[in-house]
Simulated assay, not measured.
Amino acid sequence: MEGEGAARLVGTPSNKGDTLELPKKGQKAAAGTEELPGTRDMDASGAQPGHLQPAWDCGHGGAGAVPKPSAASMDRQRSTELSALDSFPLKHSNTLTNRQRGNEVSALPATLDTLSIHQLAAQGELSQLKEHLRKGENLVNKPDERGFTPLIWAAAFGEIETVRHLLQWGADPHVLAKERESALALASMGGYTDIVTLLLERNVDINSYDWNGGTPLLYAVRGNHVKCVEALLARGADLTTEADSGYTPMDLAVALGHKKVQQVIENHILKLFQRKELE
């Protein structure tokens, strides 16, 4: 990656209105979601969860509370999901990172000088990030305009080695951004189970909620990240918490048709009942 293209890999996040929004019960999906400015080159995986809102009212209280949708509503839902998945603010770079290519430097030195610590963390530029952090003691936890620290950016983009090194260098995994976004929630949103496990080992709040009422478990369910859901449930994530939209994790899994996630949640609930009977 050379020239000015390197500087466009990571943009500055905007306000909460542009972030991922959990579905609202009984509402139709929005036609599309605005992207964060400057982040159009960030998508490597192609996964873009946006304002996905199921076309039927799912009610409250778990799996049994969801009415069976009609064939027409299922067609509308499928169309809605495909359209909503085309817009999501946190996009991954479509340029290979150091870790993926095995290179020490993925941009010209003159270009790297223009990147912030947050951009370097999101791209996994470990050697350059370390050099940058030497300029000041407080830079490792420095927030950007939205309150995102380098650790939050690295977690959001699945850069596990960067996350590991930032934690060793003193990054605080408990920090919440301005709208209560956390490294754990963003890692869960992306399905980065190794990073989720690493953060949970630092005793972060597993049930922390953001401006949207979304918890790490809700975002993992939303993304259909089975292993991530398993990891969060194994560490005691709360299954009864509802987002502002009214969905519990099971409600959301049923509404979105995530069968494997439903099975994981059902098995977890069964184990909890069995454990209680033995007490």
Rank of each mutant, 00 (worst) to 15 (best):
V196F: 06
V226M: 04
A243P: 03
T241P: 01
L198T: 15
S245H: 08
I206C: 07
H225K: 13
V254E: 02
D251Y: 00
G236W: 01
K178N: 13
A231Q: 10
C228P: 01
I195L: 10
W169H: 09
S182Y: 03
C228L: 00
E201N: 14
M250I: 15
G236L: 05
K178H: 10
L184D: 08
L186K: 13
V204C: 11
N203G: 02
R222H: 11
I206K: 05
L239C: 12
P249F: 05
L233E: 08
S208M: 04
L217E: 13
L233D: 11
V226L: 07
Y219N: 00
M250N: 12
A243G: 14
T240S: 14
E242D: 03
S245W: 08
A185D: 02
D210W: 04
G170H: 05
D194S: 11
Y192C: 08
D244K: 15
P249N: 06
N224Q: 10
A237V: 09
R202K: 15
G246E: 02
T248D: 10
D238A: 15
N207D: 15
V226K: 13
V254I: 13
H174Q: 14
G170L: 07
D251Q: 08
T215N: 11
D205G: 09
W169F: 12
A187F: 06
L200C: 04
D251C: 10
Y247S: 09
Q263L: 03
N203C: 05
V204A: 12
L200H: 05
Y192T: 07
G213K: 07
E201R: 14
G246L: 03
T248K: 11
G170E: 04
G213S: 12
A183H: 06
W211D: 13
G190L: 03
A234C: 06
D251H: 07
V254P: 05
T193P: 01
Q263P: 00
S208R: 07
Y209K: 14
A177G: 10
L176F: 01
D244H: 12
L199T: 11
L176S: 11
H258D: 05
G191T: 08
S208K: 08
V221W: 06
P216Y: 01
L198Q: 15
V264P: 02
